[in-house]
């Protein structure tokens, strides 16, 4: 380390930061996709809940359960 010049050290530090930046950028892309998918799932679950709470469907689901018994 002691033999490295200031400029060489700067170069190594920058390279190391760039490597980290590259890897994190990859993660960021996956994370972006993940949050969009999570939103899709949350939205679909909310819609599903709405359907379940809709009275005629609620009644039909109950009837289906009874039939199985």
């Amino acid at each position: 380390m002691d033999q490295l010049s200031y400029e060489e050290l700067k170069k190594i530090a920058l390279e190391s930061l760039e490597q980290e930046e590259r890897v994190l950028s990859e993660f960021k892309i996956i994370d972006q996709e993940m949050s969009a998918l999570k939103n899709d799932n949350a939205r679909l679950n909310r819609e599903l809940q709405k359907y379940k709470e809709f009275l005629p469907i609620k009644a039909a689901l109950k009837a289906k359960k009874m039939m199985k018994k």
Partner: peptide
């Protein structure tokens, strides 16, 4: 993934790079 604080760290890296260069 969120625990990595990806975007925050990327901003820090950008600042550190700028600081090293300047």
């Amino acid at each position: 993934m969120a625990e990595l604080n990806i975007r925050k760290r990327l901003q820090e890296i950008e600042e550190q790079k700028r600081a090293i260069t300047l």
